[in-house]
Nucleic acid binder design. Structure first.
Lengths: 112, 112
DNA sequence: TCATTAATTAAGGAGTTGCTTACATGGCGC
DNA sequence: GCGCCATGTAAGCAACTCCTTAATTAATGA
């Protein structure tokens, strides 16, 4: 089951696809139309549209209408949240190891 | 389609589920058996086993047999990769904005 | 007005996910 | 060995994902 609603899940899920990550990378170069975005991929336009919908649902892009073009712009706030989660977990875990290391070292010292 | 093979996709996909993120959070407290891990969730054991398989496939945990228990241990290397990707994309994008800001400021100054 | 261009929506299909219950495996103490 | 644990695997099911092609919407410019 997915029926994910929480924001973090939506962001990680959006990042879990190589095509979508490539789109994000591409968008760092600046706002881009769907057609330009689709060009390097061997994939139909609708497929790209659907990927963009996933990214939009996760808050990672914004789409604004500009005549018959849709300009896609990157938003980084959700990336901040994702980054915060990952960093928090990684760091606290490493801290635990550092602590353990030190304790072991001390144990070893006192044994000598 | 999924049939993901690349490591980053596996990691993000693993992190895209709240139950699995909770398991990771729980594992920061130290290695834990599957039973202890399953206890706080209103979910069958096999469901937890399957979540653990996803985490293992992404390289986020290690399972070692210890008599009839399996001890699950957190691994943070994949988190490093995920964090690196997110940070890289976020930071470069913000740099672009900083640059744009500066350019606009300069433009404005020269106009006065 | 009408054809062209850009993009989305609709419908459908193959494969995956996330759960379930039932069954299998394998170590333990008696 | 036998019956208990703690887990894992199998099978099945509803929902979701990722793609397709065909039809639709909407703006443009002659």
């Amino acid at each position: 089951m997915a029926q994910v609603e929480d924001e973090l899940s939506l962001v990680f899920q959006a990042l879990a696809d190589p095509t979508r990550r490539a789109i994000i990378s591409r968008l760092r170069g600046g706002p881009t139309t769907v057609g330009e975005l689709a060009e390097p991929f061997s994939m139909s336009r609708p497929a790209i549209s659907q990927h963009l919908k996933v990214l939009e649902r996760a808050g990672l892009i914004e789409r604004t209408a500009d005549a018959q073009w849709r300009r896609c712009t990157l938003r980084t706030e959700p990336l901040d949240d994702a980054s915060a989660w990952v960093d928090r977990h990684r760091d606290e875990w490493n801290e635990r190891f550092d602590l353990l290391d030190e304790r072991l070292r001390r144990l070893k010292d006192s044994a000598n």
